[in-house]
Amino acid sequence: MISQIVSAVGVMIVGVFACALYYWLSDKILNLALPVRDGDVTQASRNLNRRAVVRPWLFLGPALLLLGIYLVYPVIATFILSFYDRSGQTFVGLSNYRWAFFDAGFRQSIFNNILWLAVVPAACTFFGLVIAVLTDRIWWGNIAKSIVFMPMAISFVGASVIWKFIYEYRGAADNQIGLLNAIVTSLGGDPQVWISMPFWNNFFLMVILIWIQTGFAMVILSAALRGIPEETIEAAVIDGANGWQIFWKIMVPQIWGTIAVVWTTITILVLKVFDIVLTMTNGQWDTMVLANLMFDWMFRGGGDSGRSAVIALVIMAAVTPIMVWNIRQANRDAGGH
C-alpha cells in the first residue's frame, strides 16, 4: 500500500518533470537548430521567422496529439465501426442501424432519454433560478447556496447510494428505514418499492441528478442576476410593478442567454447520464438509457462494437446542434476581439 503511494507520487513527479523537460528541451533544440547570433543578418532574420513558425507547434504538440488520439480519431473510428459487424471485421452496411430502429430496448432507451431531457434541465434551471432569487435577499443566503451547491462535489455513485437509502423498502410489517417510505407510511399509505415501479422509477432516478445539478444552475444564474442593471429594476418599481412582474418581465428576459447556457450544459450532461442508472437499477424495470445500453452492448456476449457504435452515434447526433452553436458563439466572441 505504501509502495503504491510512493510509486504514484514518483510517477507524478517523473511525469510532470518529463512534461516540463519536453517543453524546455524542444525550445532549446529549436534555438540551437536555428541560430540567430551569426554574422549573417539575412540568415538570422530568416531563422527568427522560422522559429516563430515552428514554436507554436512545439507548444501545442502534446495537447494536439492527445486530442487526436483520444477524441478525434475515436469519433471517426466509431462512425466507421457502426457499419461493421460485432467484431468490427465485416462490413454490414446499415444493418446495425436497422437493428436499432426495430429494437425494443433501443426504443425504450430513447423514450427514457427524452423523458430525462424533458424533466431534468427544466427542473434544475427552474429550481436554480428560484433559489438564486430567494437567497439573494437574505443575510444567510451564501450559506444556503453552499449547501445547495454541495452535491456538485459528490460522485454520481455516492449520490446513488445516498438516494437508494432514501428509497429503501421494507415489508409493510417492518419499521421503514427509508425516509420516503417512512413518510408515506406515517401518512397512512403503503410502503412502495420505488425503484422497480415502471415509468415512475425514471423520475426517482431523475431526482438524484436534479439534486446534484441544481447548485450548478443556481451559481451561474445568481451571477447573471447580479449583473442586471439596477436602473431597469428601479424604473419598473417607479412604474408600479410588483415583485412577481419584476421577476418575470424585467429580470428573466435579461438573463435569457445565461438560462440557455445552463439549459444546454445540463442537457449534454443528461444525454450522457450513466452512473446513476448503472448503480440504481442497471437498466432494469424499464429505466434503460442510451449511455447504459451502449455500455451493455460493448461487453454483452463478448461485445458488439457495431451496435454499440450506433448507440454512441445517436448520443453524438443529439449533442451536435449544441456543439455547432457553441462553436459559432466562440467564433463570434473571437471576432469581436
Binding site: 486530442l67 469519433v75 466509431t78 451502449m294 462494437s305 454512441a312 449533442v319
Partner: peptide, 24 residues
C-alpha cells in the same frame, strides 16, 4: 482559429464516442 473552434467543439463530444476505439 480552426484549432480553437475544434477545442470548443470537442468539449461536448460524449465520452461514449471514444470508448470502443480506445478499448480496441
Amino acid at each position: 482559429a480552426l484549432i480553437i473552434a475544434m477545442v470548443v467543439g470537442l468539449i461536448v463530444v460524449p465520452l461514449q464516442m471514444s470508448l470502443i476505439p480506445l478499448l480496441r
